[in-house]
Each structure stands twice: as C-alpha cells, then as structure tokens.
Amino acid sequence: MLDWLISLWSDPNTRWILLGCTLLGLGSGVIGSFTFLRRESLLGDTLAHAALPGVCIAFMLGEVKSVSLFLIGALLAGIAAVLCVSAISRWTRIKPDAAMGIVLTFFFGIGTVMLTHIQHSGSGSQSGLDKYLFGQAAAMVTGDVYTLMGVSVLLILAAMLLFKEFKLISFDPGFARGIGLPVGLLEHTMLILTTVAVAAGIQAVGVVLVAALLITPAAAARYWTDRLPAMLAFAGLFGAISGASGAAISTLGEGIPTGPVTVLAATLLFAVSLLFAPGRGLAAKALRHRALKADYARTANTGALEAAEGGSRK
C-alpha cells in the first residue's frame, strides 16, 4: 500500500494527474453545491451528456485531440442543450424534468453516432475519443492537467467572489430580483460555470458519470453542516478525495476507467455521511430517538410509581 502510494508520488506524470483530478473534484464539489441547493442537479447530468456531440464536432473540425478545443465544443453543446430544455418547458406543457430527459438522451444519441463514425474513420481510431465515455485520467498530458487546474481555480474563485449573490439566488430568487440583483445573469453565470466544470471533467471522469462529481459530494456535505460556507468546504473536500482516489486507483490496473472509480469513492463518502454524520445522519437520529424514548419511559414509570404509592415520595 505504502509502496504504491510512494510510486504514485514519485512518477511526475502521475503526480500531475493526481493533482489535476483532486482540483477538479474540489471545484466541481463547490459549484455543484449551488446547483444541488437550487434543485437543479439533473441539469448537470443533462449538460454532461449533451457535451458528447460537442466534443465530437470539435474533434471533427480540429482533427486533433485538444482539451481546450473540446472544452469549447462541450460548452457550446451544453448551452444548446439548456436552451432546448428551457424552450421545451416554456412553450409546451412538458415539465422541466421530462424536457431534460428528452434533451439529454437526444444529445447523447447524436454524440454516440458521431463517436462511432469517428472511431471507424482513419485518424479517429487513434483518437482515444472512446475514453470520453467513462474517462481515462491516465491519458491526460501535462497541457490537459493545466487546463483542468485553470478551470478548477476559476470555479473556486467565482464561488468565492460571488458567494453572497449565488447564495441569495439559490435561497430566494424572488427576493434577489426584488433588491435589484440581475438574477437571470447570475443564473446564466452559474450555468456556464457548471458547464465548464462538466466539460473540464469529461476527460478525467467521462460524460456518463461526470455529473456525479457535481451532485454526490454536495449531497454528502449537506449532512455535516447547517452553514453554507462549511457545506461548500465539505463538498470540495469530498470531491477532491473522490477525484484523487479515482485517479490513483485507475492508474493501478490497465484499463480501469477513472470515472467509475471516482463515482464509487464519492458514493461511499455519501453513504458514510448519510449513516454517520452527527446531527443529520441516520445513526445520530436513531440514537436521539432511542434516548428520547428511554427518557420518556423513565419519567412515565416514575410518574406511575409515584401514583401507585399514593403520590408520596419515600
């Protein structure tokens, strides 16, 4: 175990990838907390799946595998998907959840067709684009890691600078509008930041599972605290741990995709939070309930005893 950790750290390439994935988890956890609180978690998943055709088009146009180019492709496709969702829920009687389901699967369908086409074409078979489905952190080069780091820093900085604005539009958008905040603009900013997080995470975690980095750490973090700054910190920490474990474990064996391992780590953290977090966790709740019951039974017993003894104490 120790040898393995040392070998991870001694290989400079692995070290970079580990750092990149950690930062990605951190940034996604922080930004994901806001989408979680706004009950828009599914939107992250829609953005992620919609990114696939964006990445494919970017590859077909550029003929090279470049993370920054893919980022732009994913960003544009994500925006297109969100526009589709809001158009459907605005102009028809279909509710947003169904609209997201329709758009998500449609974009992913197109993406898969494009991906298959690229794989069968000449230069495409070496593109490694299939790795974008479930992620392969080990395939990242130094430039990719730089992009990942830049994006993570951007996410964390934005969340810090716009903390109070993001908090208010998450808690009470009506009031935010009332005091003159440009709620629409802030919502779009948050959406773009989410898309950036998703797009950046695709190579490391894959389009299918990248949304888990936005949702699961935030959901786990909510169990540990009733304060938003602390929740952001917890979510960032859980995301970072998930990203790091995903990268570390997937470098172990040949061909273990990073995404699934990352998601498993995040889910494990969520399960631990759900069960054992003080205050909101299930175990703490059960203990409180038991103590309350025992307490009540004791007082009730004493009361009955006193009554039986004619109300007099010895």
């Binding site: 609180l37 109070k164 808690f171 009031f175 005091i179 003159g180 905040l181 009733d226 304060r227 938003l228």
Partner: peptide, 17 residues
C-alpha cells in the same frame, strides 16, 4: 437551506452592499 436566522436577515442588506 443551510443558513441561520441572522444570515437571512443580513440578506436584506445585500442590495446596499
């Protein structure tokens, strides 16, 4: 929402801040 009463009241000052 993860916040306390004082924090919600302070939101009333955000427009001035």
């Amino acid at each position: 929402f993860p916040t306390d009463a004082l924090d919600v009241v302070m939101m009333g000052r955000y427009g001035h801040l």
